[in-house]
Design a protein around this nucleic acid. Sequence first.
DNA 1: CCCATCCACTCGTCCGATCAAGTGGACTGC
DNA 2: GCAGTCCACTTGATCGGACGAGTGGATGGG
Lengths: 244, 244
Amino acid sequence: MPSLEFEPPKYARVVLELRRRIEEGQYPPGSMLPSESQLVREFAVGRTTVVRALQMLQQEGWIVREHGRGSFVKGRPASEREVTRPGLAVLDQPEARDGVSLVQVGTVPAPSPVAAVLGLAEGASLVMRRWVSTRDGIPSELVTCWFPPELAYGTDLGSDSPLPVGVRAHLRSVRQLRIDHIAERLTARLPDADEPTLLQVGSSDPLLSILATAHDATDAALFAVEIVMPGTLHELEDVYSVPD
Amino acid sequence: MPSLEFEPPKYARVVLELRRRIEEGQYPPGSMLPSESQLVREFAVGRTTVVRALQMLQQEGWIVREHGRGSFVKGRPASEREVTRPGLAVLDQPEARDGVSLVQVGTVPAPSPVAAVLGLAEGASLVMRRWVSTRDGIPSELVTCWFPPELAYGTDLGSDSPLPVGVRAHLRSVRQLRIDHIAERLTARLPDADEPTLLQVGSSDPLLSILATAHDATDAALFAVEIVMPGTLHELEDVYSVPD
DNA sequence: CCCATCCACTCGTCCGATCAAGTGGACTGC
DNA sequence: GCAGTCCACTTGATCGGACGAGTGGATGGG
């Protein structure tokens, strides 16, 4: 009875095995991997398959290959570590869950910074959707989305009942709209009109504000989302590799 | 007379040419590239070479390859756009240039957040180096580095004359120390003791604060650097791709 | 001791060939 | 009209082979 299970290609199996060994410390950082011809013999595959696996590990940052010397272990790459992507996180957050409460939905004129990032005239009508996330009973984020009306049309984005899935999945399923990348702009500022009430902070407490735009693959800005967090409660983390 | 100029490998030349065509609009986003066998004939190379070039373009985000359908142009990938890396930028900034003034150098006890990210006891002695960057006559950044003494030993990091190269290059040349990755932690806060004076801001103006650690390839934290900026003057930008 | 040469080993590039797997359109039969 | 089959075209995976280029150690000669 032949197995119906998915079999990864050979090169992927070599990647997984070498990665496992690196993670388990069999090949510690700084050590040299077996040579290509040794791996060919060990895994009983062609050299091209081994090379492909090693190139993939190098591209991911696990190893470095040096011409004439061998392949050397770097260890778990930096990009494998936890990195917060606040814009994406809020777009994947279902509203209909504990700790999230929808506070405002409606058509509003575009505030100046939002109009600017969306390339619209100031005051242009946008569908706004705003919610508060709380953690341990404390408001932790105020999220405001601004959608152009033609994008919101035919969706539930203008309705005041909480979405059971995140905005991203909703747009994907209702409008077959795919977000290709997100641009975020971070700044620190003081709270404006109703933010002290919604976030339960003082009117002179510093806030971290992220104004993000979601873009399609042609780079067109689809919509904007602002995330406002009390500065004393939050740290955003980012890790990046340093080129030579 | 044979040319001594560097000739890129064939696959690289295919990458460069296809990339050029995408950038010049010959293959606009959404359009389909010529098939592999067409490219084989056009570039007079083997199929493996074409495949390697296309895989590279896909890995970089310029195209997407669909099994049985062809290769489709996405356009200039998000990661190709300008992204600020404040931690790296200040480490590559020579001090001995216009707009940078060294304000403090010496051995100090480690402040609590710095000790925490470096895995040291609070109050442990560190070599501190602090400078102010100004832009158009206005202070824009206050940068403070904290080096463990054994790392600063034998370098000019404890001296009060401005470095002619950035800290990263200095450590590389004097100690053969390579920074593998940088971790940044962003938060918003109010100014502390001498920051209002150094940055010429009010004592209740919100600041953007980045506490960064530089790590070697084994993930050990080498040293810390804090960058403080007036929140009203700065926007940090980040762009990232969104997975399916 | 120092320098040049050689050699075994290493990775880098490239090729051709083969088979597998997926796509979309055309065609045929019900 | 719809479903199934076929076919040309597409990318995905794998192999073996050849040559090039770089590394580091051993060896021999001055």
